[in-house]
Design a protein around this nucleic acid. Sequence first.
DNA 1: GATGAATGAGATTTCATTCAT
DNA 2: AATGAATGAAATCTCATTCAT
Lengths: 231, 231, 231, 231
Amino acid sequence: MATDSDAPLSRRERERRTRRQAMLRAAESVFAEKGYDHATLEEIAERAEFGKGTLYNYFEGGKEGIFFAVLDTIYDELCDLIAESVAEALASDRVDPRACYHTLVGKAIDFYHDREDLFVILIKEAYRMCFSHDASKVAYFQRQQERMVNALLPMLQQADENGALRDLPLEAMAHLLIENIDGLIVHRAIMANHPNRPTSCQHQSILDDPEKAATFLTTMLFDGVAAPPSA
Amino acid sequence: MATDSDAPLSRRERERRTRRQAMLRAAESVFAEKGYDHATLEEIAERAEFGKGTLYNYFEGGKEGIFFAVLDTIYDELCDLIAESVAEALASDRVDPRACYHTLVGKAIDFYHDREDLFVILIKEAYRMCFSHDASKVAYFQRQQERMVNALLPMLQQADENGALRDLPLEAMAHLLIENIDGLIVHRAIMANHPNRPTSCQHQSILDDPEKAATFLTTMLFDGVAAPPSA
Amino acid sequence: MATDSDAPLSRRERERRTRRQAMLRAAESVFAEKGYDHATLEEIAERAEFGKGTLYNYFEGGKEGIFFAVLDTIYDELCDLIAESVAEALASDRVDPRACYHTLVGKAIDFYHDREDLFVILIKEAYRMCFSHDASKVAYFQRQQERMVNALLPMLQQADENGALRDLPLEAMAHLLIENIDGLIVHRAIMANHPNRPTSCQHQSILDDPEKAATFLTTMLFDGVAAPPSA
Amino acid sequence: MATDSDAPLSRRERERRTRRQAMLRAAESVFAEKGYDHATLEEIAERAEFGKGTLYNYFEGGKEGIFFAVLDTIYDELCDLIAESVAEALASDRVDPRACYHTLVGKAIDFYHDREDLFVILIKEAYRMCFSHDASKVAYFQRQQERMVNALLPMLQQADENGALRDLPLEAMAHLLIENIDGLIVHRAIMANHPNRPTSCQHQSILDDPEKAATFLTTMLFDGVAAPPSA
DNA sequence: GATGAATGAGATTTCATTCAT
DNA sequence: AATGAATGAAATCTCATTCAT
């Protein structure tokens, strides 16, 4: 059954979407740069090359509405990323959770390089939301977190059935795996932006290289900090 | 071992400190509730039961100065928490990193219950700082992160010498261990504040109980997500 | 000879200028009345019958920007006054510096009656500027003083070539001539505003009448305080 | 009959005056530097090395009271300067108004070098007063101007009786002579503080040297800008 | 008499939103 | 549909003055 997005679009409608896209991109860059509170509609409109008032024709709810539209695209993309990795993993005979997570971390790092703004918005604004006094914002955040967890869960469930996972609640595990991706990227970003601080060479070199960073995180989380018993 | 703060204080000076404390507490609660940008000095002053102008007699640098004074207390307390756990661990014959971390997580959870505001501020504002365009703010954040890592490191180094740790860069390990404490607390907070969402019982019960939560996180990070090879 | 300002303007642009004019007039009256420091944007906006924020759409640099826009108009008008008188004088066969200055003083007095606010601002604020710690303000003041001196100089140079002037540096002379116009107007204003103080009748009557005042100042500065040698 | 100031003073009273002096000096420097509006009692108290509250024990009328006390000292000193010059001139057989004015200008320049602050206050604040909406301030300004004029008048009256002056109202003449001293000093100050601006060498050298500057102004005002008829 | 902590009115400035064109 | 001028609430910060010590 055809959904809205499959329906043939009038030229008018297509143009409308293009303009909306431009506005979203402008909003992304401003929100990332200034943070939600210091972003101004004036600047968003300027970067989008539209008039300020026009934004109100494309987004309901003013500034906040635009912001949530941006958040939506962020979470959409992240969920796609997770879903992709999971689909690949589930496609094989015997799901390899380590490999799947390693791939996912790599994709997340790539994504960060492509769309740095989106990640920065996430880091600057998303966690704030979960302590907001506005229940609807909290609910939004929870919903989106859940989407990501749910995207990852099938892979973990399959792996669990195969006995590949420690006997711990899978949801909590999924949360932890996802949160640590953010953590890794923040950590890498700090070091990249401010490389002049003295840190151990080893530490630095491991996180600098995307491949090694993904391996590091995967090892940490799948095999643990503790030395293997035989060692 | 006498520090400045042990020196006998004039009544005047003691009173001054008391009032400063009151202002800091008021600031904590407002910053936690509203976030930095929406916190107003008016409200801080009101809750501290002082006039607006008085805040300027106690803190240099206006709103930002007050905010950093609050951040200082947060990081001081967190570093103390870490240092305490590490000191206990190092006091024993053979340092047990798992036990040490477990203790630390427990203390962090307790601390969160005592001073929820401080944690909320941390979560709402700290990460934003590392993407600030103001280099001095980034440097402050890095300095404080480093303090925490450095407080934990001695324990890891000792454990590493005992061959108890996997061969990975200790600094990165320390970062990951510390960041996951925040992550756990955020996770617990979300579930506690909004328990009405459907989640698996097992998941819920594990994270609700501080003891179990600490055990969960310690197991996750020390032993890994993957099932033990023998299993 | 068409300048930009002669170009045909869109209705939009014409309206914009009208509104800017209204704001400038309002600003003039408030700055004159209260002085720069005690003038408030609130009151300027009120008198201009616009909202406070609207001022910021018409002038860059906030309060200071508005103030300098006012100063610009003042100096523009004064320079025009001088230039007019000088042009008339130079148009004749043999420039008569006495007549030229007399005319100029008369025009200045008329201008003061028309635009009292502008003069008051000049007196209240301009000299302060030359002892400002902000070098750019000092430079602005010097630049404007120089403009006025340069507007008057051609006349003096011509007169000097005709042997009509004492052999003294012309720039210093120009300064003195210009400054004394302000001085005269201040003096007249004081007496006009507060005529109840006992002063000699002769003194009073001479300065009250614009024509006599101009003659007095011209005689003073061109022929000197000292009695003519023949007398 | 002994006046208050001739009465022997108790040690207590002498100390009180000394402290008052210190406060006045501090106030002078702050008012000169910042101008009335931006001067703060805090800074005055600091420079005077007293507590802020103490100022209120020494001056009635708070900030404004202190300011007028400073103004009083300024005008006292200026009147003394004028009175001195006039007394010297009147002491001779035949009063020489040119010489008297020349001396006065020289003294004023010296005074400016000794007490620059006082002059700066005069220039920054005094003229503002004559357009104040507060009648008592205007009256104060007029009173002080009159004092200066009255101090100079006897010399002019004597010279006038000797036929040395042009037949013009003496009060207006006195005003003009006094105002031009301020003008000269401002002019010299601007050039001294910002000598990098290109000005004619002649102009510069004449005003730089106090002696030549006094001669210039005296010639200008007594003999006039116009060339002598015989020339 | 000297002090300086406390105060809060009042200033400038920013910006989301509206709405006439 | 697109615009951007107008708005005014609300924020931070300053400082003269008071008054308990």
